[in-house]
Measured scan of single mutants.
Amino acid sequence: MSIQHFRVALIPFFAAFCLPVFAHPETLVKVKDAEDQLGARVGYIELDLNSGKILESFRPEERFPMMSTFKVLLCGAVLSRVDAGQEQLGRRIHYSQNDLVEYSPVTEKHLTDGMTVRELCSAAITMSDNTAANLLLTTIGGPKELTAFLHNMGDHVTRLDRWEPELNEAIPNDERDTTMPAAMATTLRKLLTGELLTLASRQQLIDWMEADKVAGPLLRSALPAGWFIADKSGAGERGSRGIIAALGPDGKPSRIVVIYTTGSQATMDERNRQIAEIGASLIKHW
C-alpha cells in the first residue's frame, strides 16, 4: 500500500482519535458579512469528516447552483462504474471539434489522439474542462443518470439537468442544476469515506481534487503551510461562485467545507476574496 493510499485508508482512524471539535460562531459572522459585502445569498456548511456531524452552517438547506462543483460527483459516478466493471479508466475516447464547448483548455489539445477516461476526469476536476465533463456525462448516460446515481446514494436534493455550459445559467428560483450545502457536503463525505467506492477509487477521487489547479484564489489562499486540501470550485452566471473541499491540518483532511453564493453584482475577484476570507476565519478558529 502506498503512503497516499495509507493516508486515505486511515482518515477515519486518525479522526477518531482527534480531540473533540467545537464550532466557532466567528466564522458564521464572516459568512454573514460576506453576504453584506456581496449583496447576495451565501450558503455555508462545515462537517466533521469522521462523524458527519454538522459543526457550523448557514442557509444549509437553500438551493444554490452547483456550477462546476458537480464534476466531482460526476467522476465519482464514473469511478463507481469502474468498480462495477462497467468502465475502464484506460479506455480512450475520441471526439471532434464539434464536441468542444466553451472553456476546454485540455480537451482542445487532444482532438487528434483523444483522451482516456482517467485523463478526462483529471481534466474535468483539476482544470474544470467543460468538454471533458460533457464527454464523461455521455459515458454514464447524461445528466439524468448522474441525478439517479445521487438518488441511489441517498441524495434526493442534488440534481443535474443540463450539460456544460448551460448548467451554469443560475436563474433565480430555478431548481435545475442545483444542490443544497448540506446535501453536497453529505454526498461528498460519502464519496470520500464511505463504502460506495473502493479504496482505490476513493484515493483516485481525492487525488484529482488535491491536484486542483484553478481554485488557488479561494480556500487555498488562506491555508497555512502543512495543511491538506482537496477541492473543486465552480463559477456561473449572475454572480455565482462555489467551492467544495476536504481539508485539515497535519497533512490530512478532517472536515468537509461547502460554500456557495449566487445573485451578486460583485466582480469575480471580490467573490473570490470573500470566500478566501471565510476560509481564513475557519482556519483561525479551527
Rank of each mutant, 00 (worst) to 15 (best):
residue 37 Q to M: 15
residue 227 W to R: 01
residue 139 T to P: 04
residue 86 Q to C: 13
residue 157 V to E: 12
residue 217 P to G: 09
residue 52 G to M: 06
residue 218 L to N: 03
residue 251 G to Q: 11
residue 161 D to L: 00
residue 164 E to C: 01
residue 93 I to Q: 05
residue 260 Y to S: 04
residue 125 I to D: 03
residue 88 Q to E: 15
residue 89 L to F: 08
residue 248 G to S: 03
residue 52 G to N: 08
residue 86 Q to W: 15
residue 37 Q to H: 13
residue 104 S to P: 02
residue 159 R to H: 13
residue 211 A to R: 15
residue 219 L to M: 09
residue 284 K to Q: 11
residue 227 W to I: 03
residue 275 I to W: 04
residue 275 I to C: 05
residue 213 K to C: 09
residue 215 A to C: 04
residue 200 A to F: 10
residue 82 V to F: 06
residue 188 L to R: 01
residue 171 I to W: 15
residue 226 G to V: 04
residue 276 A to G: 09
residue 232 K to G: 00
residue 149 F to P: 01
residue 128 S to Y: 00
residue 142 G to R: 03
residue 175 E to S: 13
residue 263 G to N: 11
residue 251 G to T: 10
residue 177 D to C: 00
residue 181 P to A: 07
residue 27 T to P: 06
residue 87 E to Y: 05
residue 129 D to A: 02
residue 69 T to I: 05
residue 206 I to V: 11
residue 280 A to D: 15
residue 112 T to Y: 15
residue 209 M to F: 00
residue 148 A to C: 11
residue 144 K to P: 11
residue 220 R to K: 05
residue 130 N to D: 05
residue 31 V to E: 01
residue 65 P to Y: 02
residue 203 Q to T: 10
residue 209 M to A: 03
residue 190 K to C: 15
residue 98 N to M: 13
residue 261 T to D: 08
residue 205 L to S: 00
residue 227 W to S: 00
residue 61 E to M: 13
residue 83 D to A: 06
residue 112 T to L: 14
residue 57 S to Y: 09
residue 264 S to Q: 05
residue 143 P to W: 01
residue 258 V to H: 04
residue 191 L to R: 01
residue 177 D to H: 00
residue 268 M to D: 07
residue 44 Y to G: 01
residue 143 P to T: 07
residue 229 I to K: 00
residue 138 T to N: 15
residue 160 L to F: 08
residue 121 C to S: 04
residue 255 R to Y: 03
residue 190 K to V: 15
residue 117 V to L: 13
residue 247 L to V: 12
residue 208 W to L: 06
residue 255 R to E: 01
residue 231 D to Y: 04
residue 187 T to E: 02
residue 122 S to C: 08
residue 258 V to N: 04
residue 107 T to N: 02
residue 179 T to R: 03
residue 90 G to Y: 11
residue 217 P to A: 12
residue 229 I to Y: 02
residue 259 I to S: 02
residue 156 H to A: 12
residue 237 E to P: 14
residue 270 E to I: 12
residue 281 S to P: 04
residue 24 H to Q: 11
residue 38 L to A: 07
residue 78 V to F: 05
residue 221 S to K: 12
residue 61 E to A: 12
residue 46 E to K: 10
residue 164 E to R: 01
residue 57 S to N: 09
residue 223 L to V: 13
residue 246 A to R: 03
residue 215 A to I: 05
residue 137 L to G: 04
residue 229 I to M: 08
residue 149 F to W: 14
residue 180 M to A: 11
residue 163 W to Q: 09
residue 127 M to P: 00
residue 190 K to N: 15
residue 265 Q to G: 14
residue 194 G to K: 10
residue 258 V to W: 03
residue 153 M to G: 08
residue 84 A to I: 12
residue 240 S to R: 00
residue 242 G to T: 02
residue 119 E to F: 01
residue 242 G to M: 02
residue 186 T to V: 15
residue 127 M to Y: 11
residue 172 P to S: 10
residue 212 D to P: 05
residue 269 D to Y: 11
residue 277 E to G: 10
residue 195 E to S: 14
residue 63 R to N: 07
residue 262 T to A: 10
residue 245 A to V: 04
residue 233 S to W: 02
residue 54 I to R: 08
residue 144 K to A: 12
residue 233 S to Q: 02
residue 197 L to I: 09
residue 271 R to I: 10
residue 211 A to S: 13
residue 212 D to E: 05
residue 79 L to E: 00
residue 213 K to I: 10
residue 205 L to G: 01
residue 209 M to G: 02
residue 93 I to H: 04
residue 160 L to D: 02
residue 48 D to I: 04
residue 279 G to M: 07
residue 120 L to T: 03
residue 103 Y to K: 01
residue 133 A to K: 03
residue 206 I to M: 13
residue 50 N to V: 12
residue 153 M to I: 13
residue 44 Y to K: 00
residue 235 A to I: 05
residue 198 T to F: 07
residue 102 E to V: 15
residue 277 E to N: 13
residue 274 Q to G: 09
residue 145 E to N: 12
residue 32 K to G: 09
residue 267 T to A: 12
residue 208 W to F: 07
residue 24 H to A: 14
residue 107 T to A: 12
residue 239 G to R: 04
residue 237 E to F: 12
residue 49 L to P: 05
residue 91 R to D: 07
residue 237 E to N: 14
residue 74 L to R: 00
residue 205 L to N: 01
residue 92 R to P: 08
residue 211 A to H: 15
residue 123 A to D: 03
residue 249 P to E: 08
residue 273 R to W: 10
residue 187 T to R: 05
residue 31 V to R: 00
residue 143 P to E: 05
residue 89 L to G: 06
residue 252 K to A: 13
residue 42 V to S: 04
residue 74 L to P: 01
